[in-house]
């Protein structure tokens, strides 16, 4: 027996449901299946290879490098962009002069396309021409190709990503800061709490739900944002800027090895699933909802 509500709800849900099935659920399942099959080539259809792709992956130095790079990338970007975002929000929320302009300066990178951001920074980093190399040149350290050296390329990309994300996350912190009742801070001050104590004991705990929200976004971005890799380094030099999604993109659309690309996608899906589990299981319990 279908309830009255269900009869009305299903037609309303249908468009979203169809699209979600076709572009999220079906491809997720199909990717899992593809990962266990060889890549179909010409007249040869896909064959069952079991864990073959994963065995290949274990011995694939590029995959290993991409995985390690992505972990470094995430481990630096997430705390750096979130810490900066909090600092920015606190600064803009304080009584400083011209705060609308300061806020504008922090927020502007958010609305620029990553590909344009990449171009702007490509020039900023350029050997001899770029501002950074010119400043280094003043102290006799010029002539660096920051994006072209294996030791600095990944860090150059990390700086770009933090630059782009910090202002975006700042907005969420700012919104949360403005929700804190002033009476609460006044009470803390009356109790003799200094600025540091107010931050640690009152503000930060109240910001926890926002911090979690931003954290999840930051993690997703750390595994999703590869536009600047495509624009600036294509994973090079020497795979020093190879990231998981970029490697998937290369394997699928440069080498057309869709079976192996599916197996690599499974790893990425696994990472995201793990993060989702941690989010629901561990972090949610520690947060004091208002």
């Amino acid at each position: 027996m279908i309830s009255r509500n269900a009869r009305i709800a299903w037609p309303l849900l249908a468009p979203a449901a169809v699209l979600l099935v076709v572009f999220t659920f079906y491809p997720t399942v199909a990717t899992l299946i593809d990962a266990l099959h060889s890549t179909p080539r010409g007249r040869r259809p896909a064959e069952w290879v079991g864990g073959g792709h994963f065995a290949t992956m274990a011995n694939d130095p590029i995959f290993r490098q991409a995985f390690v790079n992505n972990l470094i990338y995430a481990a630096v970007i997430i705390p750096a962009s979130m810490g900066l975002a909090l600092a920015m929000a606190l600064l803009v929320n304080a009584r400083i002069g011209g705060r609308a302009l300061v806020r504008l300066a922090f927020f502007t990178p958010t609305i620029l396309p990553m590909i344009a951001v990449a171009n702007i920074w490509m020039f900023f980093y350029a050997p001899d021409y770029g501002l950074i190399d010119q400043v280094l040149g003043l102290v006799g350290l010029g002539g660096n190709n920051l994006l072209g050296m294996p030791g600095t390329a990944l860090w150059a990309l990390i700086v770009i990503t933090v630059w782009k994300l910090a202002g975006f996350f700042m907005i969420f912190y700012l919104a949360a800061l403005q929700q804190i009742p002033p009476a609460l801070l006044e009470a803390a001050t009356l109790e003799g709490a200094g600025p540091a104590q107010r931050l640690r004991r009152v503000i930060l705990p109240l910001l926890m739900p926002t911090t979690l929200f931003i954290l999840i976004n930051a993690v997703i971005e750390a595994f999703r944002l590869v536009d600047h890799v495509i624009a600036l380094t294509r994973g090079g030099p020497n795979n020093s800027t190879q990231l998981l999604l970029h490697y998937i993109y290369q394997v699928a659309f440069s080498y057309w090895d869709t079976g192996y690309a599916a197996a690599l996608s499974v790893v990425l899906l696994g990472v995201l699933a793990l993060i989702a589990l941690i989010q629901f299981g561990v972090l949610d319990k520690r947060i004091h909802y208002r």
Partner: peptide, 28 residues
């Protein structure tokens, strides 16, 4: 118009927040 299973269905929708279309680009 909540119905039996609609909460569960909503959770399923939220999966798309984590699994963005970019992650599934080969299949899509």
């Amino acid at each position: 118009f909540p119905f039996r299973g609609s909460d569960w269905l909503f959770m399923l929708v939220l999966v798309q927040m984590m699994v963005k279309p970019e992650v599934l680009l080969v299949r899509n």
